[in-house]
Design a protein around this nucleic acid. Structure first.
Lengths: 124, 124
DNA sequence: TCTTTCGTACTAATTTATTAGTATGAGACC
DNA sequence: GGTCTCATACTAATAAATTAGTACGAAAGA
């Protein structure tokens, strides 16, 4: 048996990002936002949003004609969970080797580092 | 249709980590290392390793009785790809918001940061 | 009112990811 | 040589992930 993913899958995340941005949406809202990224059927978006509701990532409320969906959990919380999951899976939970990779790959600049240090002082 | 994952899946990664560590292995070697982590069948490990060979993560060579497998790509290269993929998917490619999360979540210490700065100077 | 539009519920199909059983053959051991 | 060990090849099963079609009813518009 294959266990259901605890974190968001690729396309679930794609949809959640749109909903966190718009805050309160109908299926159509998300469908239209998705169309700007790629070809997709309306019912596909609907199915995904229903799954996200089952997984407790979305709350549904009856509105006028269509349901209104809103995030059930704040974006930062969910993203933190994904980072934690990734770190555990790939680096056995430690952040440092991740950073080494980022530096080696030139994905972290000196400027990023400064900013981070500043943030660190504010957040002791 | 569902496209095949470009990067390593959770359990493929689990197996690859063992093989990168041992460098050159038989299915049995990996099976025994896996058993220390969790219950799994010999043939399951074999199937996964065959998939990893198809995906070009492993090279197979006939040895004595059993095949010998070795990594086809260095660990650092593959891990970098996974980091890149994660960053793209979750943070639209920028590393900074990831770091902010790490700091907020107390997963980065001042000491880590120092070390990183030092690394940065060595790697300009 | 009739027709078109829109939203949902239900159904379903495909491929991946994961797990593992069975058959078969080669080599080791007695 | 006969038996046991084990490695592989093949088959298969199941649930998740992703995609989307169809039917049906409500509402909107003509």
């Amino acid at each position: 048996m294959r266990p259901r993913s605890t974190t968001l899958t690729e396309h679930e995340l794609e949809i959640m990002k749109i909903i966190w941005r718009l805050e309160e949406v109908t299926v159509r809202d998300v469908y239209e936002a998705m169309l700007e990224r790629r070809k997709i059927a309306y019912t596909t978006v609907m199915t995904m949003m229903n799954i996200l509701e089952q997984k407790k990532y979305l709350k549904k409320s009856q509105n006028d004609r269509a349901y209104l969906y809103r995030p059930a959990r704040p974006q930062s919380q969910v993203i933190k969970g994904m980072v934690r999951d990734f770190l555990d899976r790939v680096f056995n939970g430690s952040a440092e080797p991740l950073l080494v990779h980022l530096v080696e790959d030139r994905r972290l600049s000196a400027k990023d580092l400064e900013e981070l240090t500043r943030l660190m002082r504010k957040n002791p």
